[in-house]
Amino acid sequence: MSGKAIVITSGKGGVGKTTTTANLGAALALAGNTVVLLDADIGLRNLDVVMGLENRIVYDLVNVVEGVCTYNKALIKDKRIDGLYLLPAAQIKDKDAIKPEQMKALVENIKEEFDFVLIDCPAGIEQGFLNAIIGADEAIIIVTPEVSSVRDADRVVGLLDKKGNIPLENMHMVVNRIRMDMVRKKEMLDVSDIEDLLRINVLGVIPDDESVIVSTNKGEPIVLSSKNSVAQAFHDMAGRVLGEDIPFDEKPDRSFVSAVMRFFGLAQ
C-alpha cells in the first residue's frame, strides 16, 4: 500500500497553511483514513500548538532524519481522533538541518504505511520550501482573496511546476477567509478572479470566521469542535481529496434589495 503525500503551501505567510493542514488532516482521519501531519517548518513549529499536542513532543523531525530514532517513535498519536498522527518539527534547529533527499526518503517511508502525509510548508520560497515540496505528489496552494496573496501563489505554482515536479493537474487551490458580503459588493476578489489568474482547480472555499481563531488558540481542530460553515468547508475539502464530487456551497443572495436589483438587471 502506498499513500499520497500532499504539501500545503502558499508563498505568503499567515494565510492559513497550518490551520488548513490541521483541519484537513482531522477531517480525512474522521473519514476513516490514516493520516500523518508533517510539520516542515523547522525553527518555527506551530502545527503541534494548533493541534494541542505540544506537551507530548519527545522526538522531532530532525531527530528522525539524523537517525536518533525511527519516525514511528517520533509520531504523536492524536488523543481525540483515531488514525491521526503528528510528526513535529524541531524548534531549536533551523531549516538547513535537513537535506531535500533526506526529506524525500522520509516521506516515501511514511507513505508506505499511511494513507495520507500532509506536509505543512513554511512560508517563503527558500530552502525550507524546497525541503517541503520535494517528496510531495500533490500540492494544495492556500490563497486569501488579496492581490498580494494571489501574486505569491502564482509564483509558487510556477516554482512547483519547475522545481517540485508536481504537474499542474495535481495542484489545487483553497481560497481561505472569503467574505461573501464583500465579494457581492465587489470589494473583495472573487474565487473566479483568482481562478482566472492561477488556472488550477479549486479544492475548497473557506469562509472568514472568528471561530477559527478560537479553536486554533484552544488547540482543537474546528472540524471536531464545531458544526459551522468553516467545519463543513473542511469536510467538503476532505471529500474532494478522497475523490468525491461535492458541489460548492455558494449561498445565493436572497435579500429583498438584491431581488429588486436583479429584477431591474442591476445585479446577478
Binding site: R151, D152, D154, R155, V157, G158, L159, R199
Partner: peptide
C-alpha cells in the same frame, strides 16, 4: 513560446 508565464518567470 507556448506557455503561461507566472510571477517570477
Amino acid at each position: 513560446v507556448e506557455k503561461r508565464l507566472r510571477s517570477g518567470d
